[in-house]
């Protein structure tokens, strides 16, 4: 698309202003919501990061850069990196598991497609804490999985699965897999089946047709799914707490601890802001990559 309009005539500019004004009533409610619940809180967070902590929470209005300096401490860098690592692993596993699922669902007859999609979404109808507790019942040493392993004679002693990083990955994966499957399904399902036929007709084997046509055209859906999984996985603090037993700390836990336990609001705000900024960067990259895939490289 050519977007270069070097010199807009006054008439064109006037028209743009008129259009902007006409759009205002429609945009206002949404904008207001974003300002109240997004812009102001983020502004407050940013504001907090430059002051000293109060003894029992709150702020002491004394300017400082200590909160930012503290971020560089290996402990916190480690937690941030570990969070990114865990979220990446979860995202990758969700993609590997979710793609074949979405692909299979897109290939079903309309009736079974609906059944499968409902099955994918079904867990969301149950409270998320209850579902997490269910995992504790499944994974603990006297739990369902260990009972079966022993009953089948595969192990003699229970394997400790709960309270490990792996357990966190499983918990997060379980929680967010549907968020990968749904956008992937949407992008696969809207692919014109004649594209694959065309590839086949031109001599591409089924695998080649998948690799060169289906896969690239489903990438925007995959990227959306990755964001949907990565963002909440990175900031989740309930699962690390309950299934991870609080032993593996992720950024989300750290933020919560700073506010509720350490009563260090400014540093909690700093961590929260860093987390938010990281996620915004990830989303911006995703949007740019998706646009490049669908619209192609910019023409000179």
């Amino acid at each position: 698309m050519t977007t270069t309009t070097p010199q807009a005539t006054p008439a064109v500019r006037a028209q743009r202003v008129r259009r902007g004004l006409a759009a205002a009533p429609f945009l206002a409610p949404g904008m207001l919501f974003l300002i109240v619940f997004m812009a102001i809180p983020v502004g407050l967070l940013a504001f907090y990061t430059f002051f000293k902590r109060g003894r029992f929470g709150g702020l002491v209005f004394e300017f400082t850069l200590d909160n930012w300096a503290k971020l560089a401490e290996p402990l916190y860098v480690g937690v941030i990196l570990q969070s990114i690592g865990l979220a990446l692993v979860v995202t990758l596993l969700a993609l590997l598991l979710g793609y074949p699922m979405a692909y299979a669902i897109a290939g079903l007859s309309p009736k079974w497609r609906t059944v499968a999609l409902v099955a994918v979404v079904l867990p969301f109808w149950t409270n998320f804490l209850i579902r997490t507790y269910a995992w504790i019942l499944l994974l603990n040493n006297a739990g369902f999985v260990n009972q079966w392993l022993q009953a089948l004679g595969l192990t003699d002693e229970p394997i400790s699965m709960l309270y490990t990083p792996q357990a966190i990955v499983v918990g997060l994966l379980y929680m967010y897999l549907p968020l990968m499957v749904l956008p992937l399904y949407a992008s696969l399902q809207q692919l014109d089946p004649s594209l694959r036929e065309a590839a086949t007709n031109l001599g591409a084997s089924p695998w080649r047709a998948f690799r060169t046509v289906t896969l690239p055209l489903s990438l925007p859906g995959a990227l959306t799914g990755c964001i949907f999984v990565f963002v909440p996985a990175m900031s989740n603090f309930v699962i690390p707490e309950l299934i991870g037993g609080g032993k593996t700390v992720m950024v989300g836990n750290l933020v919560r601890d700073q506010f509720y336990e350490a009563r260090d609001w400014p540093f909690g705000a700093t961590l929260a802001l860093v987390l938010t900024m990281l996620l915004v960067v990830v989303i911006v990259i995703q949007a740019a990559v998706s646009r490049r895939i669908t619209e192609g490289p910019r023409r000179g």
Binding site: D192, S194, L195, E197, A198, A199, T200, N201, L202, G203, A204, S205, P206, A209, T212, V213, P216, L217, I293, T294, G296
Partner: peptide, 27 residues
């Protein structure tokens, strides 16, 4: 289908939207 010495022009054309004209033809 992919081994048949027959090519088809689809009613919807079924051009690959992510490939340039040149790449479509070269496919």
């Amino acid at each position: 289908a992919h081994r048949r010495p027959v090519n088809m022009m689809f009613q919807s054309y079924a051009l690959f939207p992510h490939l340039s004209v040149e790449k479509n033809i070269a496919y």
